[in-house]
Computed example of a mutant assay.
Amino acid sequence: MRLTVRTNLAMRALMFCAINADRTVRKSEIAEACNSSENHLGVVINMLGQTGFIETARGRNGGIRLKVSPEALSVGQVFRVFEANVPFAECFAGSDNHCPLTASCRLRGQLSKALEAFYGALDDVTLADLVQGNSGLRTLLELEQR
């Protein structure tokens, strides 16, 4: 299994916001710290805003900040949003499924169970679990120290 770049960037952006929770952060600050293009990050930020994970403000003093507390935001929630439209295997692709084994294959059911176990494990991890007490991450992402 491999995560999409969008999911990876979403988690980086959320961790950046959580580390810098006392201020509104700019997309350019996140892009620099997380080694991302601002354009790609813009798409991710838009999705994070639409799903209610962050709030955004435009203009000179604009930027983003968490809308949900880190303790209430599970990693599983974020992954489900960003990975939902990416089929794990061809047989999960709906009308784009052209696998000749679909009618008799039992693998899809087992893969479904495995994916639910994967997401279930991530449901138990919050954004707070990733950032609180993580001095290494704080050193890398905290704006006052940069």
Rank of each mutant, 00 (worst) to 15 (best):
T7K: 08
V75M: 07
N97R: 11
F53T: 00
F16H: 10
G76C: 04
A121H: 13
N8T: 11
A117Q: 13
M15Q: 14
H40G: 09
V25Y: 05
V86F: 13
M1I: 06
L141C: 06
H40T: 04
L127A: 05
V5T: 14
V125H: 03
S28E: 13
G120R: 03
C91S: 08
R12F: 08
D123R: 02
R65M: 08
E142L: 08
L14G: 03
M11G: 03
V25K: 05
A13K: 07
G42N: 11
R65C: 05
N61W: 05
A31G: 06
M11K: 03
R146D: 13
R12E: 08
V86M: 12
S36P: 11
V86E: 12
T51Y: 14
M1S: 15
R80S: 11
N61A: 13
V25C: 09
M15G: 06
G49C: 08
Q132T: 12
E32Y: 12
N20Q: 10
S36C: 12
V75Q: 03
L115V: 07
T24C: 04
M1P: 14
G52I: 02
F82I: 00
G109I: 03
E144R: 12
G49V: 00
I30S: 03
A114G: 10
A13P: 10
C99L: 07
N8V: 04
P100C: 04
L3Y: 15
S104I: 09
H98F: 15
N39Q: 10
L3K: 12
A33L: 05
A128W: 00
A93R: 05
F82L: 01
N46W: 05
R2N: 15
I45D: 00
V131Y: 01
T7N: 12
F88T: 07
F79Y: 04
A21W: 11
R60M: 13
R2I: 05
F79L: 10
Q50I: 00
L3S: 06
T56M: 07
F88P: 04
N46H: 11
R65F: 06
I64H: 10
R106Y: 08
G49D: 10
N97T: 13
V125P: 09
Q110V: 14
M11Q: 05
N20P: 11
E71F: 00
N39Y: 13
A31I: 01
L137K: 05
V68S: 04
G52Q: 07
A128S: 14
N39L: 09
N20F: 12
L122Q: 06
G120F: 00
N134G: 08
R26Y: 05
P87W: 07
G94R: 15
T139Q: 14
N20V: 03
G109T: 07
T24Q: 07
V75P: 12
Q110L: 14
A18D: 04
T126K: 02
L73S: 02
L130Q: 06
A57I: 10
